[in-house]
Write a protein that binds this DNA or RNA. Structure first.
Length: 513
RNA sequence: AGGCUCGUAGCUCAAUCUGGUAGAGCAACGGACUCUUAAUCCGUGAGUUGGGGGUUCGAGUCCCCCCGGGCCUACCA
């Protein structure tokens, strides 16, 4: 892990020598600021040949001050073109020895500046003989940050890109390089930001209050998942990183807030895959006096707003499918969906019959006779139904076994008022009419506690949230709740097939030495 | 956790099947070049082939173990 100079590459050593040479000349390789008044994109869009193109030998009147990283250099004796990339894109800069002064041009610019350095340029825009809008640098041209490591150089033409950095590990571990050399990565994360903003705007407009609830929790709940465990020194107490926000947000409904939401990280101590990162971003929203039917309409509007914020249209292309997010979405009950797909009605069947149907008629490999009814139905649904639900579909009315925090269905026995939104075969949202009967809630918690304590390797006291039950005993209004996985939604709306491509710094194993 | 697969210069990749001095482009260095744009031209340097062990006269290549990545499965919403 030490970096003795002998470990450095030739190019790293040379750049350190250049930095020393800059110091010797009294040129600060890391100055404090640079006043910019333009970006690459603006200049390219607003340059007007009739207005701004200078006469031969004259200076142009479109003056700009820009800053960014040198990404390619074409030195031709006393004149040089280089590409400068800022947050908005790439623009070409033209530098002439006579403009900078021969000494500075030869001994500083061509000698001591490199691809990867960040520079500030003042000058005027013009169109070159080859037709490219370019900034001609004046003598007000300086280094803003010396790069001591060679940045990968990506070459491109209109049609093709060469030497593109594609190594996934490199890109995830050194996301800063990925962002610097792969502009489309910035686009994805800009879209992610736009998505979250659009969602936040929508929720604010609906009168919901954005809140922050604890990430460090003495008792964790709101989902079934293994937690991360940590310890607080001063209080000498164990704490868990939250696996869901649900139970705290619903306490706020007890307190009289009628609409609350939170966008933040949850943490689940489980495996990694292209759909799972141990920390991920959830939006959870709770609205008093509403039920899950209302919440379906609300969810449609919410996702319509977020999708159009990214694409101007509610239609997105994902994995070769046109996904239509506009309009009203199909609604089908959990058991009807299974029956539609398999011809078998499992509603109100017992575990034995469900096992038999799953194992024999559906030929599912993963089911075993000792699985509980909930687990069996979940398996049947995940295998037989979910992958086929490409267009947005509300799947409603789940078995109570799968939903300990949802309110019993007002008509259908053994079911709860819950829906999941499935898009492109993936669960995007989960919602229910919230259970607010404290006595029934206690029974459901207790029914789960023993089994979960074993599975999740924690004491049962960590599983029953007595304070939450106390809150419910004061009275929580009827309410509808919604949870949306922001990462997975971003995947669909930006066309990314791995969650790691929508998380800036995904968890990876530590680098070896 | 299991299966498949990959790891070669700063970056992108050849050479692996069929063992025989590890190559190219970009980047870098020296030189020419004041409207180039994958700039061009001449020249130069750069590698513990992810790590360790084994087979062999000889290993980037074959075998075993380990590390890391990707995909699939499992775990899991």
């Amino acid at each position: 892990m030490t970096h003795a100079s002998s470990d450095r590459t030739e190019q790293e050593l040379r750049r350190r020598e250049e930095r020393a040479a800059l110091d010797d000349r009294g040129i600060d390789p890391y100055p404090y600021a640079w006043a910019t008044d333009a970006h690459a994109e603006d200049i390219l869009e607003t340059f007007d040949d009739d207005k701004h193109q200078p006469e031969d030998g004259e200076a142009g009147d479109y003056e700009v001050s820009i800053a960014g990283r040198i990404t390619d250099l074409r030195i031709m004796g006393g004149s040089t073109f280089f590409d400068l990339r800022d947050e908005t894109g790439r623009i070409q800069v033209y530098v002439r020895a006579q403009d900078l002064g021969d000494d500075y041009y030869e001994e500083v610019f061509t000698d001591l500046f490199d691809i990867g350095d960040i520079v500030g340029v003042k000058g005027y825009a013009f169109r070159t003989g080859m037709g490219e809008v370019t900034v001609r640098a004046s003598d007000d041209f300086q280094l803003l940050a010396k790069s001591l490591r060679p940045m990968p150089v990506v070459k491109e033409t209109e049609e093709e890109t060469f030497y593109e950095v594609t190594d996934k590990e490199f890109r995830y571990r050194q996301r800063y390089v990925d962002l610097a050399v792969n502009p489309e990565v910035r686009t994805v994360f800009r879209q992610r930001s736009a998505l979250v903003s659009a969602m936040r705007d929508f929720l604010d407009e609906q009168g919901c209050l954005e809140v922050d609830t604890p990430i460090l929790q003495p008792v964790y709940g709101g989902a079934t998942a293994r937690p991360f465990k940590t310890h607080h020194n001063a209080l000498d107490m164990p704490l868990y990183l939250r696996i869901a926000n649900e139970l705290y947000l619903k306490r706020l409904l007890v307190g009289g807030l009628e609409g609350v939401y939170e966008i933040g990280k949850d943490f689940r101590n489980e495996g990694l895959s292209r759909f799972h990162n141990p920390e991920f971003t959830m939006m959870e929203c709770y609205v008093a006096y509403k039920d899950y039917r209302w919440m379906m309409d609300f969810t449609e509007s919410l996702l319509h707003a977020t999708a159009t914020a990214l694409h101007d249209t509610p239609t997105v292309e994902f994995e070769g499918n046109e996904i239509e997010l506009g309009g009203a979405w199909r609604r089908v009950s959990f058991f009807d969906a299974i029956e539609d797909e398999t011809g078998i009605d499992l509603y109100q069947e017992d575990a034995e019959r469900v096992y038999e149907a799953a194992a024999n008629e559906m030929e599912l490999q993963e089911v075993t006779p000792d699985m509980g009814l909930g687990a069996l139905l979940d398996e049947v649904f995940s295998e037989m139904v979910e992958p086929g639900l490409i267009q947005p579909t509300f799947v409603t009315d789940y078995p109570v076994e799968l939903s300990p925090l949802a309110k019993a269905h007002r008509v259908k026995e053994g079911l709860v008022e819950r829906f999941e939104l499935v898009v492109a075969g993936r669960e995007i949202a989960n919602a229910f009419s919230e259970l607010n009967d404290p006595q029934e809630q206690r029974q459901r918690f207790e029914a789960q506690a023993r089994q979960r304590a074993e599975e999740e390797d924690v004491g049962p006291e960590a599983l029953i949230d007595e304070d939450y039950l106390r809150a419910l005993e004061y009275g929580m209004p009827p309410a509808a709740g919604l949870g949306i996985g922001i990462d997975r939604l971003t995947m669909i709306l930006t066309g990314q097939e791995s969650i790691r491509d929508v998380i800036l710094f995904p968890l990876l194993r530590p680098e070896g030495d």
